[in-house]
Computed example of a mutant assay.
Amino acid sequence: MMQYNVKVDAFEGPLDLLLHLINKYEVDIYDIPVSQITDQYLTFVHTMQELELDIASEYLVMAATLLAIKSKMLLPQKEEEMLEQDPEFEEDPRDELVQRLVEYRRFKEAANDLKKKESSRSLLYARPPADISEFSTEDDQTSIGDVTLYDMLAAFQKMSRRVKDKKPKRTTVQSEEIPIEDRMNAIRYQLQGGHKKRFSDLFSEADRGHMIVTFLAVLELMKTRDVACEQDQNFGEIMIFEREGKASV
């Protein structure tokens, strides 16, 4: 199968992914269940690698850090250390990570507040509104939807497990190279005319190569702002539709 390298700007770093998992599973940031979060984090990283997405080495460094913390919490302390150490001041292997996460969350919330203030301030003018349409860009007027890349990865994981469960134990696989541009055009054709489709409906074929190319085609269409995605509720079905103003194929 052809190799595709897709870089998506939605990746903000390993701490952002950890916060996403903490919020998703509604756990206390000061009492992180390291085993559960580590397993989920590694699942996301493995999925990124399987899809051949361009991920930074810092994701792998964080994976190693989580595994080290998990190991420290699983290994029993030596009896001598337990006798010498005051239980009230027992060092928690998670302390440094928690401090980094809290600080990152603080800066992220501050950035969101500044962005809201910037948006509010942009609505204020010192003179009557003027026609500035010739200076505006299409990106300023529309968005790609409220679905994050993490939501897309989670949906792909769910789809992969479903296909794997239905796949026969023995099968003959024929390797066929599928140009990503062809899949992008096919998806555009399915969405033209204002039609909405469920994310799962795009995977009409169970072939692994077809699934990966389809997923990467959707990411490229989101990146080029040809399509938008929305999700009504957490863990709900992701809907994909063509953005207004885009020419049909």
Rank of each mutant, 00 (worst) to 15 (best):
M2H: 09
N5L: 15
N5M: 10
K7V: 03
K7C: 05
E12F: 03
E12R: 08
L18A: 01
H20N: 05
E26W: 11
V27S: 12
D28L: 10
D28C: 11
I29Q: 09
I29N: 08
I29T: 06
Y30L: 05
Y30I: 02
D31K: 15
D31S: 11
I32R: 03
V34G: 02
V34Y: 09
Q36L: 09
Q36K: 05
T38E: 15
D39H: 07
Y41F: 15
V45Y: 11
V45C: 04
T47R: 03
Q49F: 07
E50N: 08
L51V: 00
D54W: 13
A56L: 11
V61G: 03
V61Y: 14
L66S: 02
K70S: 07
S71H: 09
K72M: 14
M73S: 07
L74A: 13
K78W: 14
K78P: 02
E79T: 06
L83D: 11
E84N: 04
P87N: 04
E90Q: 13
E90N: 06
D92T: 01
Q99N: 14
V102S: 10
Y104H: 11
F107T: 04
K108S: 04
E109Q: 13
D113L: 06
K117P: 00
K117A: 02
A126N: 14
I132D: 09
S133H: 11
S136E: 10
D139T: 06
D140P: 01
T142C: 06
G145A: 08
V147M: 14
L149N: 04
D151V: 00
L153T: 00
A155F: 02
F156R: 02
Q157E: 04
K158M: 06
S160A: 14
R161V: 01
K166A: 08
K166R: 14
P168S: 10
S175Y: 08
E176F: 05
I180H: 13
A186L: 12
A186K: 12
A186N: 10
R188Y: 06
Y189N: 05
H195R: 15
K196Q: 12
K197R: 15
L202V: 00
A206V: 00
H210T: 00
H210W: 09
I212P: 02
L221I: 05
T224M: 13
T224Q: 14
R225E: 11
A228F: 12
C229W: 04
E230N: 12
E230C: 06
N234Y: 11
I240D: 09
R243P: 02
